[in-house]
Design a protein around this nucleic acid. Structure first.
Lengths: 243, 243
DNA sequence: CGTGTGCTTGAGTACCGTCAACCACGGTGG
DNA sequence: CCACCGTGGTTGACGGTACTCAAGCACACG
């Protein structure tokens, strides 16, 4: 379960075994709990094992911008490998379990196992690319396009770690959280979601998202999945559905 | 001139000497030229030596989001250290000269000189933090606040590399480019700049920006400079003006 | 002196935010 | 068992921020 980290780099057996050994301190958390406070001192890296999380910045007056989503296999705050202070808060979006690895331990592993080093670097570069896409969305795309783009991205990311079934997946994000993600109001998120449903692109009831027409979603949002795979073909696609 | 790279990590003399030796291939460019194409294959890292640059993403229909500014001393596309394909375009905003270092050369230096490795890592972590701030701006701040925040950030960044005099600096960015940066239209940028001038916060004529009331700019935009310095005090502030 | 680029201005509009209420659902406890 | 409450979703009315279109201006350059 844990070595999904290796999605983006080919690991040797010794490397995966080393990864399985290192596991320390697993925390189980509920919905909407803060994992890392903005500006807190950190001495290691967190790894999403189960559930969904997000990172965010808070403005002094209460406004919030969600800066990233974490799905199982994602590293939270890779910057902690270098700096001892977090520059954003991290919280959960659903019940979750999160592993924690000491900075020194992880850096040691990166030094001895080049595969692990590449995997972590690649993962952090993909997160940067995602962040740029989000900036492009919020800056340039309309509300309709933003939602479509985010849904495309999340569906592909979840599919890459095997958390989709046919055309549906678990998506516990509330409309208020979507609003803080996309720079919209909850009311407008609600109305835009209704448009997407009306156009038969998605269905979203409770915490279950179904992608009814991926091609159309991709077209209207100008979604190009290559930024999620570093140009390589997705290595592990445990299920069907053409991209 | 070149070793301004060392702003965020203490380098030994041997390390700065090594940096000065490595210099290869300097390109001189005019205004608004493309340095790296989005998706191009890259085999090294570019370093801004003189002038201003930016990175950006283009949507198929022509819309553009500028994702970062580069001032002298900034590395463009540190991701090229790991991946061989750029995930955004890089261009100039003014006449500029840009140095280029082969990936293998730089990685070699990072392996032998821990100070250089830390400097590059720190620089790239700061760029990530800036990118998050931009996302927060575009997602949550009003046009007025966005402009104020960007001006605060750029003024501090320029001051950190000694490119300000008293309260003014060179700022050759056009209003159209500001619009693509902040997710606004040029017309609205123009009107918002007029508001900032009317409120006696800045003056901006030609390519010269003067910060008339930094405290007020900082207050209205909720600018917190700590993300530019990794919590450390800015080491080199060659000139005056309290933050 | 014409041309191009960047800045400025006005009018009209659309997208999206705010406010306020209401509904549906699940959980809790009396 | 059902009133009660909280959360999340939905709806309507209204207003404002910001966009589009279009024109005019200033300055630099060849």
């Amino acid at each position: 379960l844990i070595h999904r980290l290796g999605t983006f780099a080919d690991l040797t057996e010794a490397e995966t075994r080393a990864l399985l050994d290192v596991q320390t301190e697993i925390r189980r958390l509920g919905t909407r709990e803060e994992v890392i406070h903005d500006g807190a001192s950190v001495h290691g890296v967190s790894l999403m094992l189960e559930g969904y999380g997000c990172s965010y910045k808070l403005l002094p007056d209460g406004r919030r911008q969600i800066t990233g989503y974490f799905v199982p296999g994602d590293l939270c705050d890779t910057g902690a490998l270098v700096v001892d202070r977090s520059s954003q808060a991290v919280g959960t979006l659903s019940p979750a379990s999160i592993g924690f690895v000491e900075r020194d331990v992880l850096r040691g592993m990166m030094d001895t196992f080049p595969g692990i080093r590449n995997a972590i670097w690649s993962a952090s570069i993909i997160q940067e690319a995602v962040s740029r896409q989000w900036l492009t969305s919020v800056g340039q795309r309309t509300a309709y396009e933003r939602l479509a783009h985010l849904i495309c991205e999340m569906f592909i990311r979840l599919r890459m770690v095997g958390l989709t079934r046919e055309n549906s997946c678990d998506f516990p994000v509330t409309q208020a959280e979507l609003a803080d993600t996309l720079g919209l109001s909850t009311v407008h998120v609600n109305r835009t979601l209704q448009e997407l449903r009306r156009d038969n692109l998605i269905s979203l009831r409770g915490r279950t998202l179904a992608v009814l027409d991926f091609d159309a979603l991709q077209r209207v949002s100008m979604f190009d999945p290559s930024y999620l795979t570093l140009g390589r073909l997705p290595i592990r696609t445990p299920d069907q559905l053409a991209v």
